[in-house]
Amino acid sequence: MSETTAVVAETSAAALGSKATVTGGAASFAGFFMGIDWMGWVGIGVAVLGLLINVYFSWQRNQREKEIHELTKRKLNGECNVKQD
Rank of each mutant, 00 (worst) to 15 (best):
residue 1 M to R: 07
residue 2 S to A: 04
residue 2 S to E: 07
residue 3 E to L: 13
residue 3 E to I: 07
residue 4 T to G: 01
residue 4 T to E: 10
residue 4 T to H: 11
residue 6 A to C: 01
residue 8 V to S: 05
residue 8 V to D: 00
residue 10 E to M: 15
residue 11 T to D: 06
residue 11 T to Q: 11
residue 12 S to F: 15
residue 12 S to L: 15
residue 12 S to Y: 14
residue 15 A to K: 15
residue 15 A to D: 14
residue 18 S to D: 01
residue 19 K to N: 06
residue 19 K to G: 05
residue 19 K to C: 02
residue 20 A to H: 05
residue 21 T to Y: 06
residue 23 T to I: 09
residue 23 T to K: 10
residue 24 G to P: 02
residue 25 G to L: 03
residue 25 G to W: 04
residue 26 A to L: 14
residue 26 A to Q: 07
residue 27 A to N: 07
residue 28 S to W: 00
residue 28 S to H: 02
residue 30 A to L: 14
residue 30 A to V: 12
residue 31 G to W: 04
residue 32 F to E: 02
residue 33 F to C: 03
residue 33 F to I: 01
residue 35 G to L: 06
residue 37 D to T: 02
residue 38 W to G: 00
residue 39 M to R: 01
residue 39 M to Y: 00
residue 39 M to D: 00
residue 41 W to V: 12
residue 43 G to S: 04
residue 43 G to F: 03
residue 43 G to Q: 08
residue 44 I to D: 07
residue 44 I to S: 09
residue 45 G to W: 01
residue 45 G to F: 05
residue 45 G to A: 04
residue 46 V to N: 03
residue 47 A to L: 09
residue 48 V to L: 15
residue 48 V to M: 12
residue 48 V to T: 11
residue 49 L to I: 10
residue 49 L to T: 13
residue 51 L to W: 14
residue 52 L to H: 02
residue 52 L to N: 01
residue 53 I to S: 09
residue 54 N to E: 08
residue 55 V to Q: 10
residue 58 S to H: 04
residue 59 W to N: 02
residue 61 R to D: 04
residue 61 R to H: 06
residue 65 E to M: 15
residue 65 E to K: 11
residue 66 K to P: 00
residue 66 K to E: 04
residue 71 L to K: 08
residue 71 L to H: 02
residue 72 T to Y: 12
residue 73 K to S: 08
residue 76 L to A: 12
residue 79 E to C: 09
residue 79 E to L: 12
residue 80 C to W: 02
residue 81 N to L: 14
residue 81 N to P: 00
residue 82 V to N: 01
residue 82 V to T: 05
residue 83 K to I: 14
residue 85 D to E: 05
